[in-house]
Design a binder for these strands. Structure first.
Lengths: 219, 219
DNA sequence: ATTGTGGATATTGTATACAATCCTGGCGAT
DNA sequence: ATCGCCAGGATTGTATACAATATCCACAAT
């Protein structure tokens, strides 16, 4: 046998299910999540549901109002801008650290992730979002810094939320070139170039998303 | 009247109580937290206890093992080092943004926080830890960036955890001078100097803490 | 003496019951 | 017609009951 059947906790299953649903855009921003309804859908009681919702709220994916339940979080244009300011810094750090510390296994994973991203149809913004997230996650993983991993997880989730709000396609003219430059710099172990490439990429993309988000919040 | 008596939720009270207890060092790293015991102590049922523990676990202050309850998290030397690497970056960003965006109110709060820190006796490491955290929190607040605030909250909590593990006093010879330089740079709206001052301060302090932590984890 | 086994005990995980709060809708007064 | 208000229903918040899992200690076998 490969491994014993591990008694996976119900609440963990619910947590992952809902998290995926939010990140994939199956749950629209602003949508309300009723406890009894979710419990009926997933066939479990309210208890693990509540605990999963609590964790997702702490992650920043949901917002809770007292006695009114939770909703999928919507971010204001200002919050989105703030997020990208921080992301530029942290993505730059992740790229620099990845350039310094990546292993051969990391290198292979990075290449594979970028290939997957290229293979996705440009019109499928959900797949694009998911694979872009996977690529950036591979970079962060290659940085081999646990604290950075945790923080980037939160940031990436927030970015995914923003993307689903704006429905911006990941593709812009320079995307492929920027991704390639970033990967090359990391593999060449040039941490300064990697940092710059990551920051430039974030900045370019942020401009695109924010331009799309602005009109809706300042009518 | 100033405001109506808001019906503060029990779970929020428990959450804040336990969070403060961990951050102040009343709960030692590694200490186990039993649900029934906590419930008896605070006079509430297990339900809000569980939900508070869930949130604190998600914050990274506690760790949970399946069917074995939660403990106050202990960080390895490697995790501590990783934390300070990220903190250097984010504290630098916070200082730079604070220099650019602080208001007169922020300036007053910053001065007050630093005064409080100076007034604390150098031998009381708990007060030092709490007031140092308050000072840094004031800087982050003055940056006026919601995303940065959220992330720094997590980081600061982790740093507090590390400090309680090592019991390192905040005071080192250059602390006062570095704090003063940092505050001056922010108030002068010199964001480059502010960033450098913050990074230097983190680096200096990290070296002190890590030097104290290293011997215990590599015997 | 040490190791392995078995059951008793305690603790967590899940489900359900009860209480409190909030939203909705309709009715009446102005 | 609009505003206020009260009742009904629905939903969250808290407590408790039940089930499943892990820990611990005694005791026997080698």
């Amino acid at each position: 046998m490969t491994s014993f059947e591990r008694p996976t906790l119900v609440r963990d299953g619910v947590y992952e299910h809902l998290r995926r649903a939010v990140l994939d855009g199956d749950l629209a921003p602003g949508e309300r999540l009723g406890e009894v309804e979710l419990g009926a859908q997933l066939g479990v009681s309210r208890t693990p549901i509540r605990e999963a919702l609590m964790r997702l709220t702490q992650d920043g994916l949901l917002i809770a109002e007292a006695n009114k339940g939770v909703r999928v979080r919507t971010l204001s244009a200002a919050e989105a801008r703030d997020t990208y300011v921080v992301r530029e810094e942290l993505d730059g750090l992740a790229a620099a650290l990845a350039a310094q510390h990546h292993t051969p296994t990391d290198a292979a994973a990075l290449r594979a992730a970028l290939d997957d991203l290229h293979a996705a149809p440009g019109s499928d913004y959900r797949a694009q979002t998911r694979l872009d997230l996977a690529f950036h996650r591979a970079i962060t993983h290659a940085a081999h810094n646990a604290a950075l991993n945790d923080l980037n997880r939160d940031l990436e989730q927030r970015v995914a939320l923003i993307k689903h709000q704006t429905r911006t396609y990941n593709a812009h003219p320079q995307t492929d070139a920027q991704h390639a430059a970033l990967l090359d710099a990391i593999l060449a172990r040039d941490h300064d170039a990697a940092r710059d490439a990551a920051r430039t990429h974030v900045r370019t993309f942020a401009a695109l998303v924010l331009n799309d988000l602005q009109p809706r919040s300042t009518p």
